[in-house]
Every structure is written in structure tokens, then in C-alpha cells.
Amino acid sequence: MADHDSTDTAPHGAPETPLARRGLMFILSSPSGAGKTTIAKKLLQSDAGLAMSVSATTRPIRPGEQDGRDYHFVDKPTFDRMAEDHEFLEWAHVFGNSYGTPKAQIWAGLKAGTDFLFDIDWQGTQQLSQRAREDVVPVFILPPSIDELRRRLTARGTDDAAVIEARMDRARAEISHWSDYDYVVVNDDIDRCYEQVRRILDAERLRRERQTGLVSFVRQLTGDGSPT
């Protein structure tokens, strides 16, 4: 790995750059138990330039959760009205509850150069890709095997056998959509998987089309007004 001067990167997050940059929507999807929640937490803890997208949901608030931090908790009529008024970038029904991403905060953040992390399923990923493909970076995390996925779900000790079977059925359905994603990573080791996801995020931040200040910066370098 090449050496870097301490001024090249921010203390915890996206590389510092003289260029203005549009933010991105970094999506992590996986079947339950494949590790996306753990990886998402590690990314947020290590990267001050990444913000969690806070979804609206109709499910009841759980102990330790905070409205506006973990979710925007709303009742079903409110959620349905927001959906009818096209206030969501994406929304879906999951296990009897509704989840949706309010679009106003995301559009404003992207314009300001904020990167958002999304923990959503393949349905939400498809909706986001249809609405804003150039801003979306979809990553799918696979378990090393179905047997290991079942072991992880069982080891949680939070679900009975019937719920685990329902989650396994849903996992197989979700895995079948792996080819809809730009990146696919196998989580056979959580630290290695995290590093792979981290490198994807770093590389996507440097894509030419996201550097909104690149043309004027290059013109300054060439001194002839040329955009190339």
C-alpha cells in the first residue's frame, strides 16, 4: 500500500479534495443474518462523511430506539398519505409493516455532497435505481453458505423455528436477485468483508461523474479554458 501524507485524508471518512462532489446513495442489501447490519455499523463508526438514511416505518418502536434517529415512526394512515403524495424515494411492505425513504432530505444531502448509507432490500434497491441510477451504488452481501446462514439465525436466540424457516425462505428469494447489484461480496469473514465494502465506497466517491467541480478545476490547471 502506498504511503499517504496525513493531509490527504480526513480523520474519519471521505478523502479531502479541492473538488466539489455530489453525494451518493450507498446501498447494502443481504438476507437477514448475512452481516449487513454489522458492516453498516462499522462503516458509520469509521466514516464521518457517511450518514445513515433514516426511513419512515409503521412498525412499533422497540426499546432503545429513538424517533428520528433509528426511524421516523408513523402510523399507517400517515405512511399511506406520504406514499400517495410521492414523498418516498422507495417504499415496501416487509413482514406486515411498511418502510419508506423520505426523498426531500436525501435530495438536499446529495446536492450538498453528503453520502447516504441505505440498509434496504432488493425491492427498495430497484426503486432507487429507477429513480436515481447515477447516484446509486448497490452492494449485495452473501452468506458463505445456506447452512451457515441458518446457524447464524438460530444462534441469535430471538426467533422460534417457524420464524427462522420464514426468514430462510425469504433469504433464498432475496439471494435470487444478486445479479441486480453492481457489487457482490461474500461474508465468510466479517473483517475481510468490511474492508472489501470499504474499498468499494472509497472508489465510488472518486468516480469522474461525481466530481462536479472537475471541469473548472482542470480548466484552471490547463490555463486555456479547455474542459479536457
Results as ranks from 00 to 15, higher is better:
residue 82 M to H: 13
residue 204 E to V: 06
residue 126 Q to S: 14
residue 79 F to T: 02
residue 157 G to Y: 00
residue 77 P to I: 05
residue 162 A to R: 12
residue 71 Y to M: 04
residue 24 L to G: 02
residue 22 R to C: 05
residue 82 M to P: 03
residue 199 R to N: 08
residue 169 D to R: 11
residue 41 K to M: 08
residue 169 D to V: 12
residue 192 R to N: 12
residue 189 D to L: 06
residue 202 D to H: 10
residue 206 L to Q: 12
residue 219 R to K: 15
residue 178 W to F: 11
residue 196 Q to T: 12
residue 132 A to L: 15
residue 180 D to G: 01
residue 78 T to C: 10
residue 23 G to I: 09
residue 210 R to A: 10
residue 112 A to W: 02
residue 202 D to R: 08
residue 6 S to T: 09
residue 114 T to A: 07
residue 179 S to Q: 14
residue 198 R to D: 15
residue 27 I to L: 13
residue 188 D to I: 04
residue 186 V to A: 02
residue 185 V to H: 06
residue 133 R to W: 01
residue 164 I to T: 03
residue 93 H to N: 09
residue 206 L to P: 00
residue 158 T to V: 05
residue 205 R to M: 11
residue 100 G to W: 13
residue 9 T to M: 11
residue 90 E to H: 08
residue 178 W to S: 11
residue 88 F to R: 00
residue 122 W to E: 07
residue 151 R to L: 07
residue 82 M to T: 03
residue 100 G to V: 10
residue 15 P to N: 09
residue 65 E to T: 02
residue 179 S to N: 06
residue 96 G to I: 08
residue 139 V to T: 09
residue 141 I to V: 13
residue 65 E to S: 05
residue 11 P to T: 03
residue 139 V to M: 06
residue 35 G to M: 03
residue 60 P to C: 09
residue 78 T to A: 15
residue 201 L to T: 04
residue 119 D to E: 15
residue 68 G to M: 11
residue 126 Q to L: 11
residue 122 W to Y: 15
residue 110 L to T: 05
residue 86 H to V: 14
residue 120 I to A: 07
residue 154 T to H: 10
residue 220 Q to Y: 00
residue 33 G to T: 01
residue 66 Q to R: 11
residue 102 P to N: 09
residue 194 Y to V: 00
residue 130 Q to H: 10
residue 62 R to W: 12
residue 36 K to Y: 14
residue 216 S to I: 03
residue 58 T to V: 08
residue 194 Y to N: 00
residue 105 Q to F: 04
residue 189 D to K: 03
residue 192 R to E: 12
residue 201 L to P: 07
residue 47 D to A: 01
residue 44 L to E: 03
residue 156 R to D: 10
residue 158 T to I: 04
residue 51 A to K: 15
residue 14 A to I: 13
residue 151 R to D: 03
residue 61 I to T: 14
residue 199 R to P: 00
residue 127 Q to A: 08
residue 65 E to V: 04
residue 222 T to P: 02
residue 100 G to Y: 13
residue 159 D to P: 09
residue 119 D to N: 13
residue 123 Q to W: 03
residue 91 W to K: 00
residue 135 D to M: 10
residue 88 F to A: 00
residue 119 D to L: 11
residue 18 P to Y: 02
